[in-house]
């Protein structure tokens, strides 16, 4: 989604929203909520957790000392906060690091084409940890070094999981395509 607002206006909106200006908050929410919620949903696969992460991210934006620097675009900062919140949950719920495909990702996106639904389905076949690493690396541009630091692991750990997960996704994509022929 392209933002009609110029990046320079955002710090002013954030300042106003912090002091309780509803219109400023509504504008920031309108501009960025879908992107933040979508990322949280992709990483967690769970709509309720995605809501919590979105709330946590926006409330963090509204804190007085939150690490957001004026002059920088807000969207990447929000997405970084949301991704970190998702990773924290993943690390807190240690069982996610081991489990296989969970069933709580059955929430289907509405109005998707067959191929996008297929891709969303493919993504959901990965366990949460693999899905998070793949999405952050492939789609959000996180480096292996960043992922490794965030998970307190080595870069080779991240490389290995991403590479195996991508291979699995490609295989499944090809298998699905084969079935459709």
């Amino acid at each position: 989604m392209n933002s009609p607002i110029i990046a320079g206006d955002e710090p002013a909106l954030v300042r106003k929203a912090r002091w309780g200006d509803h219109a400023a908050f509504d504008e920031l929410y309108r501009l960025h909520a879908a992107a933040v919620y979508t990322l949280a949903h992709r990483l967690t696969g769970n709509p309720a957790t995605a809501e919590d992460i979105t709330q946590e991210t926006f409330l963090r934006m509204l804190q007085f000392l939150n690490g957001f620097k004026d002059g920088l675009p807000l969207r990447p900062w929000l997405k970084r906060v949301a991704a970190n919140a998702a990773i924290d949950r993943l690390r807190r719920d240690r069982h996610h690091l081991l489990d296989e495909v969970t069933e709580d990702q059955a929430h289907a996106e509405n109005g998707t084409s067959a191929s996008t639904a297929e891709a969303a389905g493919l993504l959901r076949r990965l366990p949460p940890l693999q899905r998070t690493l793949v999405w952050l690396h492939e789609m959000e541009g996180w480096t292996h070094a960043e992922l490794a630091a965030r998970f307190r692991q080595s870069p080779s750990w991240s490389k290995s999981i991403v590479s195996r997960s991508l291979a699995k996704l490609r295989d499944e994509l090809e298998t699905d395509a084969g079935h459709c022929r």
């Binding site: 989604m1 929203a17 309780g20 509803h22 908050f25 509504d26 929410y29 909520a33 879908a34 992107a35 919620y37 979508t38 949903h41 992709r42 709509p47 995605a50 809501e51 979105t54 709330q55 926006f58 409330l59 509204l62 996106e109 109005g111 998707t112 084409s113 191929s115 996008t116 297929e118 891709a119 969303a120 493919l122 993504l123 999405w135 492939e138 789609m139 991508l166 996704l169 490609r170 994509l173 090809e174």
Partner: peptide, 29 residues
């Protein structure tokens, strides 16, 4: 195959947050 997969992932649509979420966050703030 890698490009095909990436194309699929890029094409995934945004997921709209529930309409009540904005109000919930505003209230908490």
């Amino acid at each position: 195959p890698g490009q095909g997969l990436r194309k699929h992932l890029v094409a995934l649509p945004q997921v709209a947050p529930p309409p009540s979420l904005g109000e919930r966050i505003g209230r908490a703030h």
